[in-house]
């Protein structure tokens, strides 16, 4: 087992553990903090998978901005104290386990590497050697994918306006 594999499996286990705790903890704050662990572990997995820039963004945007927003809303609604459990009863548990397990096996059947075509070696690593870690991502983003990129800015503007309109008591 190489060092890369050891790191990969360690952080995979941490991510899955965080996700499992996130969906079972009673207090929303505990759930949010376990989710932060999952997000950090995923950032480490992104580094292993040759996506260093995505990993940095994962920490900045997800673990930083989005999770702080969640904790902020939990605090604002005063949901921090553990109240009565919001987990559904045995029927809900059975349905969740059944559908989750079914979906998992479906995904495993469909998501085998052979279904993704024959991998052509480490093309991502080669690209990063030639153009740099950020350059390999930035070049296509600002040429081939320029129009989707610009449309994203419109989407974010719409989200800003929508959030203000929804959260304001009286306009």
């Amino acid at each position: 087992m190489t060092l890369t594999q050891i790191v990969f499996w360690t952080f995979s286990a941490l991510a899955v553990l965080g996700a499992a705790m996130c969906i079972t903890r009673r207090s929303p704050v505990a759930s949010a903090l376990w989710l932060v662990q999952t997000l950090f572990a995923l950032a480490a997995l992104f580094v292993v998978l040759d996506a260093q820039f995505v990993a940095v963004l994962q920490v900045l945007v997800y673990a930083g901005a989005i999770m702080v927003l969640f904790l902020f809303v939990i605090m604002l609604l005063n949901l921090g104290r553990p109240g009565p459990s919001d987990l559904k009863g045995p029927v809900g548990l059975a349905v969740a386990t059944l559908l989750g397990g079914l979906l998992f096996f479906q995904l495993l059947r469909g998501a085998t590497p052979s279904a993704a075509g024959t991998p052509a070696g480490d093309t991502m690593a080669q690209l990063q050697q030639e153009q740099g870690i950020v350059g390999a991502v930035a070049r296509p983003l600002f040429s081939q994918y320029l129009i989707p990129f610009e449309i994203t800015s419109v989407l974010l503007l719409a989200a800003i306006v929508g959030a203000v309109v929804l959260a304001k008591r009286k306009l």
Binding site: A15, V16, A20, I23, T38, L93, F104, A111
Partner: peptide, 16 residues
Amino acid sequence: VSAVLFALGVAGVLLR
């Protein structure tokens, strides 16, 4: 791992 995390997310939506 991606499949496991996705299935856990779906189970969470159904469970909570």
